[in-house]
Design a protein around this nucleic acid. Structure first.
Length: 743
DNA sequence: AGCACGCCGACT
DNA sequence: GTCGGCGTGCTC
């Protein structure tokens, strides 16, 4: 007899509590149910982790209430959360929090209910009615059922009047659940599967074979790395793989980076699956949904009505059951990594979920992460290569412009080389479009005094302030601090203080000066203030109202505009010199992705990469569209320094307001860990050292980096040691397993 | 996370 | 003799 529920409360205690199940709730509570329980003198919500018949504790309290008719957590996702807590060193309640959105876990149901009026056929003899009443009933008989509010408006009647008629059994007023649909207003035109080229066919064939029998390792490992050049038609392979999954009676999860979750992406999936023999709902999960929409989407999945989920990072926990396929599109994207605890990487969680539920996982990218490609090379994943564009278009010609030469010709550093300038001119004459990319917003990256070397820095962070011309102020891109622009150097009173380093605002200004008749649009997070701006801007670009689109990161991904024949990367070195062992990899990915925006139409595309280090491998391999070459040389570098993918990293950050205290704590922690973790073979500990961003939002930060061959064993011991470590007051320690951001 | 208990200093 | 500071530890 199971009469005890083991509950994980909605607190980060890393501990469960046992409660008796009262007889009236017996049978209603299962593993995964949400319950309300007494805790001290409070009442809290929690998730049932297990049902037991014994508890090591006596005087158990009673469960107060069960929420909802069915468990919100499916056992598979609960297991996944447990693994996540262990691997990423976080309390499992925190892991559970990611797996179950706030909108779903709270007490009140979350469904939006609306009052509806319904016509009832009159019971035998019709009682005496006034003319007005008769008129209202007649109207209702015509429409049969209608939202109360709407009916009151059209008939100009009152609720009291209708209630009176309800009492006489002439109509019925009741609550009806009004399901929200975040894309309800979109018109979806059904799409049919496209013809596949041989490479796409081979990829689909391999995935289908694995879908048929994921349990048997056989010819294919169930994790695929789909390496397809930009424009090779990966999405069509995804779509047809999903169709196959549905045929086999299973569901699918599609993960895309948050910025890629545009209405167009969603539409593409809805168009294929909202009609036809396999018709199913496509649920969408991302951070811009209202909590009500999120609740409804989640319920649609839980009820099995939506069997395809498309979403950002956290959609990897969607309660799809049974699950057959997980797709991680643009698997190299850093936005899959959550930067707050639990610091999970959705791609890695997807691979683990795939293994636990024996389903197929497809990781897709034109520029795979070194980690994934390494796994494919070592036969942990199956490698699928697509080397040609689906439409047989050629990859764009990429030219690297050596800006050091440009520097000598003119006075100072020009923003545009002669080559890029004339290329833009040509596009303007031919009415073709240009995309310009610069990975830095603002006008100038710093304010510098040429005489004494003073640089305007943030008072809270260890970086320089960026000058924003539009607001005419200095701004910190870390903490948001703003300051006035001084007329004189605050240190030496020199009036010739000047701006250094370029940002998108300055490029915009230069463009307008150089091409006064061109329609230029800047696109960065300073421009996109409102929710719909992104959509509207891209709409303008698509319809040809913009000649030159200038932007940061956000224009690098997935945009598909046939009339874009020129892409210019204003300053390719920007991402190359950040203190991170992945700087080269990031640059290669960024250049390849941006270059892929050119030549999506009839006319061949052209790409100009401006650089001061034109012979850097990341730039040269990107120029030749040579991923393999880049991979080989980058892997060698990683091997030499024992960085991922040949090792795993755990990054500890020690934070506090007093630098000396932070440094001291970091040193104590290192000594402790050196002792306690000595049994781990091949563990390398670097630091403590001030973090690259040594101070952020007034906090001093020190890093301690651990590297080891295999992480899974280390992370549990690490969690234990950190729990036992007595951290002084006002200092805190955080762990990041497999960190992506090393700043 | 919150809320008690508890053990020391300054007030009616 | 009592009020209140916030350190420590417990909550099934």
């Amino acid at each position: 007899m199971t009469i005890i529920a083991r509950v994980a409360l909605d607190l980060s205690l890393d501990k469960t509590f046992d409660y008796l199940i009262p007889p009236e709730l017996a049978g209603q509570i299962q593993s995964g149910s949400r319950v309300k329980v007494p805790f001290g003198k409070r009442e809290l919500l929690g998730s049932v982790m297990a049902l037991l018949d014994h508890s090591p504790h006596s005087n158990l309290k009673l469960v107060l209430k069960v929420l909802g008719p069915r468990p919100l957590l499916i056992p598979q996702v609960m297991d996944l959360a447990r693994w996540m807590a262990d691997y990423y060193c976080c309390p499992f309640e925190l892991a559970l929090k990611s797996a179950l959105p706030e909108a779903v876990r709270k007490e009140k149901s979350g469904w939006r209910a609306q009052l509806w009026v319904r016509w009832i056929s009159p019971p035998g003899q019709i009682p005496k009615l006034t003319g007005r009443q008769r008129e209202i009933l007649k109207r209702l008989e015509e429409v049969r059922e209608i939202p109360l509010k709407q009916f009151l408006q059209t008939t100009n009647s009152t609720a009291a009047l209708l209630r009176k008629l309800e009492c006489r059994c002439l109509l019925e007023i009741r609550e009806k659940i009004q399901e929200r649909d975040p894309y309800g207003d979109d018109i979806i035109i059904p799409s049919a599967p496209l013809e596949l080229n041989p490479e796409q066919n081979a990829a689909l064939g391999a995935i289908s074979a694995a879908l048929q029998n994921p349990a048997r390792a056989g010819k294919f490992k169930p994790v695929f790395l789909l390496h397809g050049v930009t424009g090779s038609g990966k999405t069509e392979v995804y779509l047809q793989s999903i169709a196959k999954t549905l045929e086999l009676g299973r569901g699918a999860i599609v993960l895309v980076p948050e910025i890629a979750l545009t209405p167009q992406t969603v539409e593409r999936f809805k168009a294929r699956f909202s009609t036809g023999p396999l018709q199913t709902l496509v649920a969408v999960l991302h951070s811009h949904l209202s909590s009500g929409e999120r609740h409804d989407e989640w319920q649609k999945i839980l009820q099995g009505r939506a069997r395809i989920v498309i979403g950002a990072r956290s959609a990897v926990f969607a309660p799809v059951n049974p699950l057959g396929l997980i797709i991680v599109d643009e698997e190299h994207e850093s936005s899959y990594k959550q930067e707050e605890a639990p610091r999970y990487h959705a791609r890695d969680v997807a691979v683990m979920r795939g293994r636990m539920e024996q389903c197929v996982v497809v990781l897709g990218s034109a520029t795979p992460s070194l980690e994934s490609y390494y796994n494919a090379r070592n036969r942990k994943y199956s490698l699928l290569e697509m080397t040609v564009r689906a439409d047989d278009k050629k990859l764009p010609l990429v030219r690297v412009v050596d800006m050091r030469h440009e520097f000598r010709k003119e006075k100072g550093i020009p923003i545009f080389s002669q080559l890029l300038k004339s290329a833009i001119e040509r596009r303007l004459e031919q009415c073709e479009q240009t995309i310009l990319f610069l990975n830095r917003r603002g006008y100038a990256s710093s304010l510098q005094c040429p005489k004494c070397g003073y640089v305007a820095g943030c008072p809270n962070c260890s970086i320089s302030l960026t000058y924003h011309r539009q607001e005419s102020q200095l701004r910190c891109h870390i903490c948001g601090h703003t300051g006035q622009v001084p007329d004189l150097c605050p240190a030496c009173r020199n009036p010739a203080i000047r701006f250094a380093g370029i940002g998108t605002e300055k490029v915009e200004e230069a463009l307008r000066k150089l091409f006064p008749r061109a329609r230029v649009q800047r696109m960065d997070s300073d421009i996109l203030k409102r929710k719909n701006d992104y959509r509207l801007l891209l709409g303008d670009f698509r319809s040809g109202k913009i000649d030159i689109l200038l932007g940061t990161q956000m224009i690098a991904k997935g945009l598909h505009f046939p009339n874009v024949t020129l892409v210019g990367i204003v300053y390719a070195d920007l991402s190359l010199h950040i203190p991170d062992f992945r700087a080269g990899e990031r640059t290669f990915q960024l250049l390849t992705q941006v270059a892929g925006r050119a030549g999506r139409g009839e006319i061949e595309g052209e790409v100009f990469v401006q650089s001061f280090t034109p012979f850097h491998p990341a730039i040269q391999y990107a120029r030749r569209h040579d991923f393999q070459g880049f991979y080989e040389q980058e892997l060698e570098f990683r091997q030499q320094l024992q960085y991922p993918p040949v090792s795993r990293v755990a990054l500890l950050t020690i934070k506090g307001k007093i630098e000396e205290k932070v440094r001291f704590t970091a040193e104590c922690l290192k000594r402790e860990l050196e002792q306690r973790l000595s049994p781990f073979d091949g563990l390398v500990m670097a630091g403590p050292a001030p973090a690259p961003l040594a101070r952020a939002e007034t906090w001093f930060r020190y890093h301690l980096m651990l590297r080891i061959r295999q992480m899974s064993k280390l992370s549990q011991s690490l969690a234990l040691e950190l729990k036992n470590f007595k951290c002084p007051e006002e200092v805190s320690v955080t762990v990041d397993i497999d960190p992506v951001n090393l700043m």
